[in-house]
């Protein structure tokens, strides 16, 4: 998996950190996405894809 997170597009809704806290976090100051693991194990793929889908601002992508 290759996950990309665009902090400029991010609006800090927190859907990614809520869905896969092992992979996504939010910064203390701005609440924008912090990518903890850009290449997580395959077992997390379903959850990561769900987080990408739920992101309201289109800040996440996975390939």
């Amino acid at each position: 998996m290759d996950i990309k997170a665009d902090t400029d597009r991010c609006i800090g809704a927190g859907m990614c950190a809520l869905t896969v806290p092992e992979v996504f976090d939010q910064s203390e100051e701005e609440g924008t996405v912090v990518l903890l693991d850009a290449d997580p194990p395959a077992s997390r793929e379903t959850a990561v894809r769900k987080a990408v889908q739920l992101c309201p601002s289109g800040a996440l992508s996975v390939s």
Binding site: I11, G12, G14, L18, Q26, E28, G31
Partner: peptide, 15 residues
């Protein structure tokens, strides 16, 4: 919008 929202998002994070 971004100017306002960015000032607030850190206060409403999951953590």
């Amino acid at each position: 919008h971004t100017r306002f929202r960015r000032l607030l998002t850190g206060q409403f994070t999951v953590r």
